[in-house]
């Protein structure tokens, strides 16, 4: 009788497989291929993909870029109004540079993410619905441009979710999305 502690006897490769195990292999195999197909397809037809152009940029150069953007943006009481479709966010210990920002609902923005010092985590959700949240990794040395369109007006809160040092928990910023 086959035991896992003994070498199998005879031509074990050609032993028939139990019928129900064969059916299970079919179900598991189809499911595996199916979820691969869905994930691949969603990059083509889906609206939520962590996909965008990435550029190499030294942290100091990125900081200058964010500063140029801030200079060009309009300052209001609620935050910066971006001059064009690009929104820059600079992650640093323990602050989100260039936030808060005021955006129009329904308009597509290119959100530029980069860090000045160590790795950070861009974790964002609307104030009203905490379950609607996404998280993206932010590197020093890379500028990641992710297009986003916020349909619902409201305040979106950004916190850091990659450990960046002792003050990590205090890193907070906002995006204010207003009706166009």
């Amino acid at each position: 009788m086959p035991a896992p502690l003994d070498p199998p006897e005879g031509n074990w490769w050609d032993e028939p497989v139990n019928r129900r195990e064969t059916i299970w292999l079919g179900i598991a195999g189809l499911w595996s291929v199916g979820i691969f197909g869905w994930m691949s397809g969603f990059t083509q037809f889906g609206d939520q993909n962590p996909i965008g152009e990435t550029y190499d940029v030294e942290p100091d150069a990125y900081r200058e870029r964010v500063q140029e953007y801030k200079d060009a943006a309009e300052e209001t009481e609620r935050g910066l109004v971006p001059p064009e479709d690009s929104v820059y966010v600079g992650a640093m210990r323990y602050n989100w540079d260039a936030l808060p920002v005021v955006l129009e609902a329904g308009r597509e923005y290119d959100v530029h993410l980069g860090a000045y010092d160590v790795q950070h985590g861009f974790s964002i959700r609307p104030e009203e619905t905490l379950s609607k949240q996404i998280n993206l990794q932010v590197f020093p040395g890379n500028e990641w441009v992710i297009p986003m369109t916020f349909d619902e007006p409201g305040t979106y809160h950004v916190i850091c979710n990659e450990f960046c040092g002792q003050g990590h928990r205090s890193m907070h910023g906002t995006l204010v999305v207003e009706e166009a």
């Binding site: 609206d47 939520q48 297009p147």
Partner: peptide
């Protein structure tokens, strides 16, 4: 195993449903 697969499919569908409720993200 069929119960397991049912749980798998349910968790999969729920997670994708939550995701598609989000604003539009990515190129």
């Amino acid at each position: 195993c069929l119960v397991f697969m049912a749980a798998f499919v349910a968790a999969y569908v729920l997670n994708w449903y939550l995701l598609t409720q989000l604003w539009s993200i990515g190129a």
